[in-house]
């Protein structure tokens, strides 16, 4: 029929008019990234991390600077975890190296900055740092308590031995 194509075209635009839109308000809304997207900043789950420093060892560019502090019970804790974004090549080896699945990407790709100095990302958050101190205190207290118990025991043994 003459003009059938025109009607078909109008049908297509009609459907698109009411259909879902492909674009979005960019800075306010962002396109959700895929499961395995590598990019943005690293995220450290400070509760899972055992400060084994395997990630840092796995990094081919030495982009991860760690500051690991042993607590009173000789257990290692992460005090500072600096991701040098400028060096990172987003190879994902650190994430793969982590046995505890404590590392992941935040998938926020809009990370450009004005200054080079801003390209060092501290992964241990304030919360993480508080947790670190808490754990350190707890370990110290436990260690002291243990030491006290051990001392008392030793005392008792000593006196017992004497007696």
């Amino acid at each position: 029929m003459f003009g059938e194509g025109l009607l078909t075209g109008m049908g297509v635009t009609w459907k698109h008019f009411w259909g879902k839109k492909e674009t979005f308000c960019y800075p306010e809304e962002k396109l959700p990234m895929t499961e395995r997207f590598r990019g943005g900043h690293l995220v450290l789950d400070h509760k899972k991390c055992i400060a084994c420093s395997l990630c840092s060892l796995a990094c081919p560019n030495q982009a991860i600077k760690l500051k690991i502090v042993p607590d009173a019970k000789k257990k290692r804790h992460m005090q500072s975890y600096v991701h040098l974004v400028g060096r990172c090549l987003y190879c994902n080896l650190c994430v793969e190296a982590c046995n505890m699945h404590a590392l992941s990407w935040d998938k926020n790709y809009a990370i450009s900055s004005w200054h080079k100095e801003e390209m060092e990302d501290e992964l241990v958050t304030a919360e993480g740092l508080a947790y670190f101190h808490e754990v350190m205190e707890k370990a110290k207290a436990e260690a002291e308590a243990e030491a006290k118990v051990a001392a008392e025991k030793a005392e008792a043994e000593k006196t017992g031995g004497d007696a």
Partner: peptide, 13 residues
């Protein structure tokens, strides 16, 4: 807006 919607965009926002 009509133009944007028909081109599967969201138009002025």
């Amino acid at each position: 807006k009509v133009c944007a919607f028909m081109q599967v965009r969201i138009g002025p926002n």
